[in-house]
Nucleic acid binder design. Structure first.
Lengths: 234, 234
DNA sequence: GACAATTCTTATGTATGACATAATAAAAAG
DNA sequence: CTTTTTATTATGTCATACATAAGAATTGTC
């Protein structure tokens, strides 16, 4: 009985659509198709692959969904440079994401903001710093409402992301904002102890003006101290 | 003639599938559906929405593609906690991604590795450090082949990602590996000047044993100096 | 009456054919 | 030669039919 195991290849359980999808992706890779290139029309694929138009269309739908191709109505489909973030913007529904992932994402934010000091220092302009100063100047005293504070928090840190000059990172932050507010609102991590953070926004701007990438990085680390404490318990 | 402009609402050019997709996503959000919950079967959606099964199925295909739902054959579809990274693994074909995005992603790697010092220090175990020591011990002298070096580079830094205990970040790194090798191979950034990095893997392990999160962070920053120089050009 | 074997029933997967529509190309009109 | 009109074409949508496998219902056996 056992002998058969070696003779029998595992059966391919994938659906036709799965196979066609793989075939198409491999085609893109093998033929080194670049954005803008046209891909065969549905009928041609039907004939070449020997499956129904239904299957071909479903495969194409998948590729469209992940942003690899774009179809111009009545014209055909073309390769597209996928906007990675756009793709899962739709999937970014905090309510349906499991808690571990939410925590992970929250952590990644902290990691990114600490690590981006060099990019900021390399690319900051006087105008950026001025704008950041104004944002800080408009911040209310910490005694005022927390909702307002969150708003300013987003403004300040958002500007920092912009200053990295890294569009992908900016998109990333934008994408993650709903997750952050969700995490704040939920009981996922305990409510902030709201002890004054060791380094304020104001001080960070100061480091930006007169400090170095290193000092700014450490300043940011201390600024985020509250968050770290909440993540690691204590 | 001009007067009409105010009277006329802009026509909705979205396809039926677009609308159904939005409707379904809003349903998930409004009804606060959680992973595991069942969603109506195709026929029911057909009747409720007044569109053909073709349209419903194409909408569902999209949701499946971004990982929001999962369909069990002949049973129905259920809500799924989307694995965000899995989603665009398929779209991660460096050849079709535009160069700016590739650069951005490469930068994000540097940012992450510098920023993750705290996570590593918080969660490292003796075993981790031991394993890392062994990886370093097996590294060839820098005189040997570059291909080998890339391999060890991946091993070492990959282990660091693991040590963060952040699954999402690990997946992220895994996902980005093809991008890195592509960026290396391409002329996207100039070939490394291969000046000895200021801090070696060996020294990093040492910082991990005897240093602090801060010193390790700065060590990593110096270790990645080569990459930064190439990104920023002199 | 409990359990096993068999047969529906059901929901998705796949195939086929049809028609609408809009972008383009081709043909006709001036 | 330019403009207008008329095919042509490829995708979007609809309708219908059947295959298949999971689960439910039924039957059969002891």
């Amino acid at each position: 009985m056992e002998d058969f195991k070696n003779e029998l290849a595992t059966i391919d359980t994938r659906s036709l659509v799965d196979k066609v999808e793989m075939t198409l992706i491999n085609l893109l890779i093998r033929k080194e198709l670049k954005p803008g290139d046209k891909i065969p029309k549905e009928i041609e694929l039907v004939e070449a692959l020997g499956v129904s138009r239904t299957v071909v269309r479903e495969s194409l739908t998948r590729l469209k969904t992940i942003g690899l191709i774009e179809s111009v109505k009545h014209r055909g489909a073309i390769i597209k440079s996928p906007d990675l973030l756009e793709t899962f913007k739709k999937a970014m529904i905090p309510g349906v994401m499991d808690q571990t992932t939410l925590r992970d994402i929250f952590e990644m934010r902290l990691v990114l903001e600490i690590g981006m000091a060099d990019l900021i220092f390399q690319r900051k302009t006087d105008e950026d710093v001025k704008e950041l100063s104004e944002i800080v100047a408009n911040e209310p005293e910490s005694s005022e409402g927390i909702l307002f504070e969150v708003d300013h928090e987003v403004k300040f840190h958002g500007k920092l992301y912009k200053m990295t000059g890294n569009q992908t990172m900016m998109n990333f932050q934008n994408l993650l904002l709903p997750v952050f507010s969700y995490v704040y609102d939920s009981k996922l991590i305990e409510r902030p102890i709201k002890k004054r953070s060791y380094v304020s926004h104001r001080e960070l701007v100061d480091l930006l003006k007169r400090g170095t990438a290193e000092s700014f990085r450490e300043g940011m680390r201390k600024h985020l101290e509250n968050h770290f404490q909440r993540m690691f318990g204590e």
